[in-house]
Every structure is written in C-alpha cells, then in structure tokens.
Nucleic acid binder design. Structure first.
Length: 715
DNA sequence: TGTGTGCGCATTTTT
DNA sequence: TGCGCACACA
C-alpha cells in the first residue's frame, strides 16, 4: 500500500462521508462483505463511500475496481456520487450494468469472443421479430409454435446458462423447441445478433475460453462491488465468479427481503454462494433507516416477519412514530380510485408536492381506473413504465435506417423497406429475399421502386464512409429516407414527427466512451438503455407498479388493490408454493417502505376484472400489520361475515331475475368445503353443469370449483 | 397496402 | 373489459 499524499487525511475524508458505525464498518471492511442493507438504510451511500475509500485512503487505482448494478439509472447515480467524492478519468473505473459491462468486454474482445465486431444487440422487440422471421423461414406451424412460446423457451434456457445442445428435451415438444433453439443460435451467429441474455452468456464463454484474458481481468478487478445482489441470476453469478482471481474482494450489497424478481430468475441463494465461494463471509447489517417514520417501519417489520425464508433483520429509526397508517376501504374499484384521487387532490391543495405522492398497484391494469379519477379530479399524474422512447415504432424505424448505414441487417431492412410506403409489393420483396443475400439483390435489382431505396442506402453508407458525425448520420437517416417527411405530412402523426426530431437531437447529444465507434455505440445504447426518458418533469402524482417503485421514495404513498387474489395475486395463491406468497409479501414490504411519512392502504370489496364483477376479501397482508400502527381496526379476514361494515355495501346483483329454483351460488355466499372449511364465493362463470365458482378460504386462498361436482355446501 | 374485424387472452419484467 | 395480433378485404 502506498503512502497517502501529503496534506490528505484519511480520517478527515472518512468523517466527511458522514457514515453511521455500521455503514462505516462496511465501507472500510478489509475483507469480503455481504452488506444486508434494508430499505432506506443508505446502501448507495455505502457503496459509493467504499469506492471513495478504496481510491482515496487505500490508494487503489480506479481501474482495479469493478462496480456492477442492474439498471442504468443506478449506475449513473453511483458514477455521479463517486465523481463528487474523488476524481478519475472516465473509463478507468468499470462501473455499469451487468449487460453494459459484458457488452463492453465483448466489443473490445470481439475477435477473441468469436464475434463479428459489428454485432448488433437485439432488444425484446427485435428478438421477437427475429424469431417470427425464423419460424416462418422454417415453415413452422404458427399454431403449434407461437413465437412468444419459442422466445420464452429460448430465453428461459439461456437464463439458466443452457445452450441449445444442453437444453433438456425429455419429451417431444421440448425436442422440437430445442431444435428451434438450435436454429435460432445459428441464425444469430450468421447475422451477428446478440439478445440480452446472450451478452452475459457470450461474456461467460469468452472468459471461460480465453484463459489469459480471464486472468487479466481477474487480476485487474481486485475489488468487485455489486448492487442489489439479491436480484442476481445464475448467469450473473457465474460471470462474477469467473472474474475471481482467488484473492479479489467481493463487496455485495443487497436485501433478501426486497427480492421481487425471483419469477425472472433472480436467485437470492446467490447470497449464500457468495459467502461460501467468493469469501464474502462477513455479513454486515444496515438496519438504521433514514427514510420512514416509526409506524411505517413497524408495519414493514411486522409484515416481513411472516416470511419464513429470510436471513433476518429489523429496521429502526431515530425519528418519531409519525402518523399512523390509514386503511381506506371502498365498495368498488371505482370508489377506491375516487378516494385516492380525493385524498391526493386535498393534499395538493394543502400544499403537498404532487411529485412527492405515489400511487402504487400490483398490476398495470389497475391504473386505468386511477387515471380516470385523477383526471376527473383535476390531479396531474405521470405513469411510469409506459412505452420507452427507443421502443416507439417511429424510433425503431429511425434506428433501422441508421443501422443500415452501418451494417447489412435483414430485420432493419424488412422493417423499413416500405416505411414510408414505397409501393414495393410482396412479389418484389420475395424476389429480393429469394437468393441468400438481400443486400446484393437490392444492388442488382432493376425495379425502379427498389432503386429509390437503393439510393437511400448508398447515400447513407457513403456519408458514413466519409466520416459524417453520428448526428449528421441520424439526420440523414430520417430525412433522406423520407421518414420524417412522411410523419410530417400526416397531421395525426405530428407526435411521431416530434419524436423523430428528438431522435436526431438524442444522437447529437450522445457521447460514446473512449475507443467506441459512435454509431455502433449509439445503437447498442438504444437497446440497452431504453428507459430513463420516463414521463417527463413537472409536478405530477406518480403512478406505477410496485416493481417499478423499487428504489424510489415518496412522502405519501397509496398502496391500492389490497385484496386477496389481486395482492397477493391469485397465481401466487393457487400455486401450492408457499414461496410465491412470500415473494408477494416481499413486494408488499417494498411497497410499504417506499413511504416516508404517510401511507394509505386501499382496498375494494368488489372489482371488475375482465369484465366480471368479483368480490374479494381484503388482503391477508392487512391482517399482518400491527394494529397499533394503524388508524382503524382492521377488517376481519373472510372467515365468517367478511363484508360486515364498514364496507358492507351489497355486491351488485344481476339485473335479470334469478332463474327458477334460485341460483346455487352467488358471489358473497358463505359456503363450506369439507377440506378447506368455511369460505366465501367470490365469482362465478358459466351456468348449469358448467357453472364454476371461485371460493376464497381463509387459509388456502382462492380455489375454483365446478359447482356440479364440488363437495360444497351452504354454511 | 393500409385498414377493418374478430378472436383469444390476460401479474410483476431492472437488461 | 380492453388490448394486441392474425387474417381478410377493397
């Protein structure tokens, strides 16, 4: 370790970071660490402080540090905070997302990784059209092999680290799928395309196959820091492990209680593996919460204590108890939305900042009612998680033209050959695609309409060869192709024209990293960083799914749809897996801990789902909160009379008179089942012999029965 | 070659 | 109920 420069005092530097004892212990730990950082305990601060400490106090060159996050947003935030602390040349510190860093490695070592240096990244949309094209080339039966299923199979296999050759195929359909996957692999290779999972997979293969380069990186990254470690999947863990020299120090920050992506392959078991295999044997807990009031934390702690499968920790605060949580019962989904809108409107009228208010929900479909009520009450709102900028159709088109300036890309070609319309018919297109190389065919084609397109391509490529800037190329791509003019000529596409112009300015503002080819980097960036441009600025109430809310915080939070079957979701209930409900509970934990000061728990007695009115008992999660932290006695779970006051409005009865002999079961009826005990009918479907009823039971959740055969009786 | 109609389907999804 | 997608049509 070198001597620190004169005039620099490590203790002073450490003090300037203002860390609490646990944070400080973590940030300055000399060995490998797993930091269990509860919500709002300053995990980003600890991560960035450690980087600062390594560079400033331990004289660690930035190039010896690797810091990985999941989102570009988190990476950007961290980079900014580190830069505030210490200065270093951009690019020296490897800080980025898993995908971003793997991508960088593959670009630098394309040849060694067995890739063409012009490889393109496919986002999910690109991947889907690619698969669609492949299936139609193969003449696959679209009924039997829907593109979405094939894509699901391929991605699932990849996320488990399986190549087509290794994919299991114990029965016929799986064998067919494996074959399709095999075609996909070779087509990707032929066309130089990498999907998201492939960035990880190729990076892993590369490290495995290139011993010297692997050793080079393992020696370089003496410190490996990982954010949100509970969300790592198998591929990410394998990649991290390949970077191990045997002496690297791993510093992982995570929270098993906030693991909400298990359904996508995230495996919190990686925490145990990290400790055992990568020497992060010290666990340091951050339990001092700086975000929420005592009542909110108490609710979160009590709720999550119901999960059996957890490492365990308890959040505390030095602040006061704050106001108690409020339950907002409503008769219907509509009424719930109305309540939310009223309360929000009143808060804003009383001087609350709209963007410090969030309305959270389990499913995107719930936003519709909320939006309607907010509009009616004159409350400005912003929805997170809509279509991202680079996912928009017109931007996809613009990107395709830009890509064609750089590479022979068949999907891009097919996307824009007739956009704007050029009158190139199916026949002409078939003749172009008939022989192997479309681009050669375009060059040779005698059709005048194709000639127009050929000239556009030639023009763009010439421009690129002449060294035009990214912005010039992007402008040329949308202007010379006629794309911008096309949208400008149609009043209904004015918004699209704006976006296309925005695209050009985005290209102008884009700065490639050192050593990157700008067009290539911009295209990769468009695939990898589609987000961020969400919603826009201004005072507006935030609407989003709970998943989207992870990592954010607001003064006032509404959690809506707290009903059995919605949250926790029906799927998590009828799956026998206890794990599924635990993940829902973690989701609830994430939702609660988003709130700084005020938390509203909303639920409705009835809700229209897929056009049918359903009755659902209040969520079990409400019962799991400590009564003392809540302003009203909580409703009793649906054991006996579930819809007693205060939300006792009768379920909407059907308009028509009941059939003769009365109806066997109606929503709201209390029934008895020999195995599950007492329950409440929540919905029904079909009639006569076909009548199916959904019944909510206290312990096993919602079950569906065929009324004619089920051993149900009236209670 | 874009538009219409009807069917089927329907958590969450950082990259 | 409402949306996206596949196919039929002028």
């Amino acid at each position: 370790m070198n001597a620190p420069p004169a005039g620099f005092s490590a203790p002073d530097f450490l003090d300037s970071l203002r860390l609490n004892p646990s944070q400080r212990r973590a940030a300055t730990h000399e060995g490998g660490v797993l930091v269990l950082a509860g919500a709002g305990t300053g995990k980003t601060r600890v991560l960035t402080s450690r980087i600062g400490w390594l560079i400033k106090c331990r004289e660690c060159p930035p190039r010896n540090i690797l810091a990985v996050t999941f989102t570009n947003k988190a990476a950007k935030e961290m980079r900014g905070r580190v830069l505030d602390m210490v200065s270093f040349r951009t690019g020296e510190l490897a800080l980025g997302t898993f995908h971003g860093i793997c991508h960088r490695m593959l670009r630098i070592h394309a040849a060694a990784a067995g890739l063409d240096k012009n490889f393109q990244i496919m986002d999910i949309q690109d991947q889907k059209s690619f698969i669609r094209r492949m299936l139609s080339n193969l003449g696959a039966d679209a009924e039997e092999f829907p593109p979405a299923d094939c894509m699901g199979y391929i991605n699932a296999a990849k996320e488990r680290g399986l190549r087509a050759a290794d994919a299991p195929a114990h029965y016929e359909r799986a064998r067919a799928m494996r074959e399709i996957y095999g075609h996909y692999e070779s087509m990707c290779r032929n066309e130089n395309k990498l999907d998201f999972a492939e960035l990880l997979l190729s990076a892993i293969d590369f490290l495995q196959n290139q011993k010297e380069l692997r050793e080079h990186y393992a020696a370089r990254f003496r410190h490996v820091l990982i954010d949100e470690f509970q969300d790592t999947n198998m591929l990410q863990y394998r990649w991290l492990k390949l970077l191990d020299s045997g002496e690297n120090l791993y510093f992982a920050v995570g929270d098993d209680d906030q693991s909400i992506y298990a359904f996508r392959g995230a495996d919190p078991e990686n925490m145990r593996r990290l400790r055992a295999e990568l020497r992060a044997d010290e666990i340091i807990r951050l339990e001092q919460n700086y975000r929420s009031t005592g009542n909110i934390l108490g609710a979160a702690n009590a709720l999550i204590a119901n999960n059996k499968n957890r490492i365990g920790k308890n959040l505390t605060t030095d602040g006061g108890a704050g106001t108690r949580l409020q339950t907002i019962p409503a008769d219907s989904g509509n009424a719930e939305a109305e309540s939310v809108a009223h309360i929000a409107a009143n808060k804003i009228a009383d001087g609350a900042r709209a963007d410090d208010i969030a309305v959270l929900y389990r499913t995107n479909a719930q936003s519709r009612l909320l939006e309607k009520s907010l509009i009616e009450n004159g409350v400005a709102y912003r929805i997170y998680g809509g279509l991202r900028f680079f996912d928009r159709l017109e931007i996809k088109h613009a990107l395709a033209y830009l890509r064609l300036a750089a590479a022979d890309d068949l999907d891009s070609f097919l996307r824009v050959i007739n956009t704007p319309p050029r009158g190139i018919g199916k026949r002409t297109l078939e003749s172009l695609t008939a022989e192997g190389n479309v681009f050669a065919a375009v060059e040779k084609s005698g059709a005048p309409k194709v000639a127009v397109f050929r000239e556009i391509m030639r023009g763009l490529r010439r421009l690129r060869e002449d060294g035009a800037s990214l912005e010039e190329l992007a402008r040329a791509a949308v202007e010379q192709s006629g794309l911008l003019a096309h949208y400008e000529s149609r009043p209904e596409d004015a918004g699209r024209a704006d976006n296309v112009r925005e695209f050009v300015s985005a290209a102008g503002q884009f700065r490639a990293e050192e050593g990157e080819e700008p067009v290539q980097a911009f295209l990769a960036n468009a695939a990898l960083e589609s987000g961020e441009a969400q919603g826009g600025e201004g005072a507006a109430v935030n609407l989003m799914t709970i998943h989207a809310a992870k990592g954010l915080e607001f003064s006032t939070v509404f959690i809506t749809g707290l009903e059995e079957g919605l949250f926790p979701s029906a799927q998590s209930l009828d799956a026998a897996a206890e794990n599924a409900v635990e993940e829902e509970r973690r989701l609830m934990y994430v939702a609660i801990t988003r709130a700084r000061k005020e938390l509203f728990l909303c639920f409705a007695a009835t809700r229209i789902i897929y056009g049918q009115t359903q009755i659902r008992p209040p969520s079990r999660f409400l019962d799991e909160l400590p009564a003392a932290a809540i302003d009203k006695p909580l409703p009793v779970a649906p054991s006996v009379a579930p819809f007693a006051p205060p939300y006792s409005s009768p379920p909407p009865r059907r308009q028509t008179a009941p059939p003769r002999g009365g109806e066997p079961y109606r929503p709201g009826d209390v029934v008895h089942h020999p195995k599950y005990g007492k329950g409440v009918v929540v919905s029904r479907q079909g009639k006569g012999e076909e009548l199916k009823v959904e019944v909510a039971f206290k312990h096993v959740g919602i079950k569906t029965f065929l009324a004619a055969v089920a051993p149900l009786s009236r209670a």
